[in-house]
Design a binder for these strands. Structure first.
Lengths: 192, 192
DNA sequence: CGACGCATGTAACCTGTTACATGATTGG
DNA sequence: CCAATCATGTAACAGGTTACATGCGTCG
């Protein structure tokens, strides 16, 4: 399980409360790991009883108290070991892969192509966000600190992922467009 | 949930028993969806009681009887609708992403680079398998039937995914190699 | 004070994983 | 007949999702 380790990484960057961690997972951490606040609270509780993190209640101005967590020595040691341990292969699970594999069993090929165009638009939206973040936060990659270089390279991975998906889906569209242009219409609209 | 729909797609390609489906998920279906036989049997049972599939016990030569499932009319209709319905965004979950993001908190940068090299080797292994399958099964993409074109394009997606990961991890290695070459050793071995 | 938002949870459910169990059939 | 294998399951558990609940603080 990696959620606990993802939390450890985030807490080592800066101590935080459960809701602050939730916001981080929604933001920068989020493009390669998702977690809801319920998962995070549940996991933080287990990590505290395991001695991986410590907590301190901190009163706040204008807001309810927060419980701020920080990594314990044991947690840091556990993380350092996990970081260099190869994990088992994670099979990607892609709804879209299933849909495109089975596209022949949809009634309407054009609807599949619309779906693909819709996916492309979503990937391009995320790509634009990542590119903007990359240009804004890391204008000079060669000058980064070690920890920032890591973050920059992970962001680069996200950019490559989105780019690769867009290229693939465009290949899909091109292949089907040329096929449909070459052969006569096979799913005619019903004549009025 | 897409496991049920993945099973529907596989059964529409050809009716099959639970164990045969399991083998298909291990093989061709497997590179974008994983499922163990327990998941498949459980799901088949639910799908049958929902009326998406029908089953027939078939005696076999030299082997125990098998229960062969096929898609019902309702199942085919359900699948056709699902295929053209856009799904919610699936956040990728990447252990490796977490590890590289937190690499600064490992004791040993060289161990991280070894981990990355190990990952590259695994991706290259899978890529070689996909490329071989692509060349062997689809020597002439322009001549494929519609259903085969879909399968070919999904395989192309798998190839692009592996290629993209390899490129990203090589970018990671390059960035860190040049950094380590430029600056003096910062994690010296303890003197004996 | 009452409505709202925030931080922190609890409960129920579903999916996925791992370990074990059963019957049927063949091969030695 | 005994071991090995195949096909089909059951049981127990961990992780992820969704809906709901509580207590605190501000703002109108």
């Amino acid at each position: 399980m990696a959620l606990e380790h993802a939390i450890l990484v985030s807490l080592r960057e800066r101590a935080a409360s459960g809701s602050e961690l939730t916001r981080r997972f929604d933001r920068s951490f989020g493009f390669f790991w998702a977690a809801t606040h319920q998962q995070i609270y549940r996991t933080l509780g287990r990590m505290e009883s395991d001695g991986w993190v410590t907590s301190a209640v901190v009163p706040q101005q204008g807001k309810p108290d927060t419980k701020v967590y920080d990594v314990s020595e044991l947690g840091a040691k556990t993380l350092a070991e996990w970081l260099v341990t190869p994990g088992a292969h994670q099979t990607p699970r892609s709804d879209l892969g299933v849909k495109l594999r089975g596209a022949a069993y949809a009634d309407d090929r054009e609807a599949i192509l619309d779906l693909v165009r819709h996916e492309i638009a979503e990937h391009e939206g995320r790509l634009a966000i990542y590119l903007a973040a990359c240009a804004h936060d890391y204008p000079d990659p060669a000058a980064l600190t070690d920890a920032d270089l890591d973050r920059y390279l992970v962001l680069r991975g996200g950019i490559r992922l989105e780019t690769g998906q867009i290229e693939w889906l465009n290949e899909y569209l091109t292949a089907w467009d040329s096929r449909r242009a070459a052969s006569p219409e096979e799913t005619p609209k019903e004549p009025s």
